[in-house]
Write a protein that binds this DNA or RNA. Structure first.
Length: 107
DNA sequence: GGCATGACTCCCA
DNA sequence: CTGGGAGCCATGC
């Protein structure tokens, strides 16, 4: 067993360029379907320290979840640079949603 | 142990 | 489409 936070970090690191995952799905893959908020919290506090590809993480609607305009713009730019098309600040989850080959079970 | 925090999600008006 | 409200729970002080 590993801390939920580490599971989350590993999953985020496993997201390939040009793909995105929602907070909810990351939480599910970490074995905790209702921990979407914890995922958010992890990013809020650890993204910079761990150099995580947080720009590949969006909310359930495929929109950029971050509030700060500056970072939001950065994420938008980074995603398009990886080939993700963003229409009306919305990403087509059908096309870009990523399902990891592994999944952490309940621990 | 208690309490606040959080870049969420789901549901309904 | 927007907005509000409830549920959710790991983490840190």
């Amino acid at each position: 067993m590993q801390p939920f936070t580490e599971q989350v970090i590993k999953i985020i690191l496993s997201i390939p360029a040009g793909r995105v995952m929602s907070y909810g799905q990351i939480a599910r893959c970490a074995g905790n379907p209702r921990a979407a908020r914890q995922v958010a919290r992890v990013l809020h506090s650890l993204s910079e320290k761990h150099s995580l590809p947080w720009h590949r993480v969006v909310n359930a609607k495929g929109e950029i979840a971050i509030k700060e305009e500056n970072s939001k713009k950065t994420q938008h730019t980074l995603l398009e640079a990886e080939g993700v098309t963003i229409i009306n600040d919305r990403i087509s989850l059908k096309e870009y949603h990523y399902s990891p080959a592994f999944i952490f079970e309940e621990y």
